[in-house]
Design a protein around this nucleic acid. Structure first.
Lengths: 339, 339
DNA sequence: CTGTTAGCGCATTCAA
DNA sequence: TTGAATGCGCTAACAG
């Protein structure tokens, strides 16, 4: 390769890394040789010699992820992450390596440190609930590694990349209010996630803006599980004045609500309109399909990759916080209240 | 690190790599030091010095994969791959890197060669349709890289890892026959995939074993798309004597059959029992949920990782072909024929 | 059984 | 603007 272009090894390196101080003529010659030989530098060697590894490390919660895969419940969080992260990384010659880490284990630090030592990634992408785990973020700060916190809005180290959960819940609630509903219930997510609180707040804001009373009996406590969704929905349906509209903090709980409605002979959306959060594939296939808030997962990981790569390149002035737009997919589960 | 245990750098290497010729005492000492310092060797350096990279490369078809991600149709092929491949790899300190390659592009070889040059993986996992792409397999042979062909049964280089599609179709058909159905239809998949033919053969074998006539009008031609499933099902329903049972070669077409049945007021499973292939998450959420052949995707990639790692370790006597067991998940879409 | 030597393929630093 | 030396952190081959 060195000889093919009639230049030294270093010049090849310079051209490949787009460094200045190479005559266009020589650049061309090298590029031609590279194309001809199909030369691609070894990642490992680049990492050894230089200061970059061209690797991004994406960390997911082990138990949740494996459980999701095993159950086959159709959550496509990981797929959307790969879609956004991999494709964006590839644009800059980077790879994204996906790993699982146990957030609750006493060994979190050891696990994360191990992955870092082995891979020496140029940046780390954290997803909930890692995004708000100080054991992890502080370790990363100590290492001087740039990182992105997906789904986290709390200010702090690293890039915070999220959607506006509060506004989304507000909009979801508005959608029901616009349809004419006046009693709208809400099912919360697990308190372990900061976004759960944000979504609840948004719901409350929407009601308040319309001058509707804040009735805490309309708020069911859930934890993102189907089970908890069933329990919460049953409680709401048992009220003297049950809600005609319902916002659930994720798809599983919304599906649970749908199930309860079916069992009780409550028509959807006639007697109960349901809005869901997340928009995993399954909500398109339920009957009726669910109106849902669409999380920009791919866009968030894409942005994360973008920022981390830029950051490693020494670029400054990058936004510390990034709020990406969500959308509301209106489907069959919401309509005007009957009667 | 070297000093911490009071031994040479080389001895540390030996202990970490589980090589022989180290006194148990020294081993202990090194292990202790490793645990204490949380030492984890750098993958890049190991690849540079040694002959292994501790990397497995998994190659998927770019267009199909991205289209699947974008559409949000809930295919969890990638997730199941990761589940099987990543976890098995991790057991041996390996990582699996997932990449997308364009099978139909004239650049396949260049793309694959590029990934290999950059990563120097110890093995490559091919998924359909790459598994039977000679441009890729021959390139891998030339490189002397061990590889696994998922979903491929054709003998040849690399490990062939698949399920028995013929037997699965046979069993799916048997399930319907056992329930008392005597007219069972079949919707084929695209001829581009070898497994389509295998499934059709299995269906025919099942009928033959019961002494049932081979009625070609009961065989609808599909191509795995929802559209084609609709067309095939309509044709079957238009027969003078429509089938009371139906085996579809994938989930999309089975869902299409369900849709057609719903539109025509044909009750499922009462008047039409449906068996599906693949068992993607969505079939659990249709109404009724679909009885389906479950592909052992995770098991196949797990086996692939297992064999490749062993192979790289110089182990011989590994099976060239591996047929993994499928299961039949019986759900609400199949039952005894009524009347 | 253990330590020493050399080199993997690059990027970095300096010299030309 | 280019080329030559140096070293990254390991493992392989050999020496002791």
């Amino acid at each position: 390769m060195a000889a093919e272009a009639g230049v030294s090894l270093q010049t090849v390196s310079r051209v490949i890394n787009n460094e200045p101080n190479v005559r266009p003529v020589v650049q061309e010659r090298v590029h031609a040789a590279v194309a001809k030989l199909g030369y691609v530098p070894s990642l490992a060697a680049r990492r050894m010699g230089g200061s970059r590894s061209y690797l991004l490390l994406a960390l997911n919660d082990r138990d949740r992820t494996i459980e999701g895969w095993r159950s086959g419940e159709g959550t496509d969080w990981v797929d959307q992450m790969l879609l956004g992260g991999m494709l964006k990384s590839a644009e800059s010659g980077y790879r994204m390596i996906f790993e699982l880490v146990d957030t609750h284990s006493a060994q979190v630090e050891r696990e994360v440190q191990g992955a870092i030592s082995a891979l020496h990634p140029d940046g780390v992408i954290l997803t909930p609930p890692h995004s708000d785990n100080p054991l992890i973020t502080e370790l990363l700060v100590r290492q001087g590694l740039p990182f992105a916190r997906i789904g986290s809005v709390t200010p702090g180290d690293g890039f915070a990349i999220a959607m506006d959960d509060g506004k989304a819940a507000e909009e979801a609630t508005d959608h029901l209010l616009d349809l004419g509903h006046t009693r709208v219930g809400f099912i919360t997510g697990s308190d372990e996630y900061a976004l759960s609180g944000a979504r609840l707040d948004g719901y409350r804001r929407a009601l308040a803006r319309r001058g509707l009373p804040a009735d805490d009996s309309l708020i069911g406590r859930g934890d993102f599980s189907f089970q908890s969704g069933v329990a919460a929905t049953e409680a709401l349906c048992d009220l003297a004045q049950p809600p005609t509209g319902l916002v659930a903090s994720n798809d599983q709980m919304a599906l649970a609500a749908l199930r309860v409605a079916n069992r009780r002979g409550i028509s959807v959306p006639g007697q109960l309109s349901i809005v869901s959060f997340d928009d995993t594939p399954i909500v398109r296939f339920s009957n009726p399909s669910l109106t849902a808030v669409v999380q920009p997962i791919a866009a968030m990981t894409s942005m994360a990759a973008h920022l981390l790569i830029r950051s490693k390149s020494g670029e400054t002035g990058l936004p510390a916080t990034c709020i990406l737009p969500f959308t509301l997919a209106v489907r069959g589960s919401t309509g005007r209240p009957t009667g």
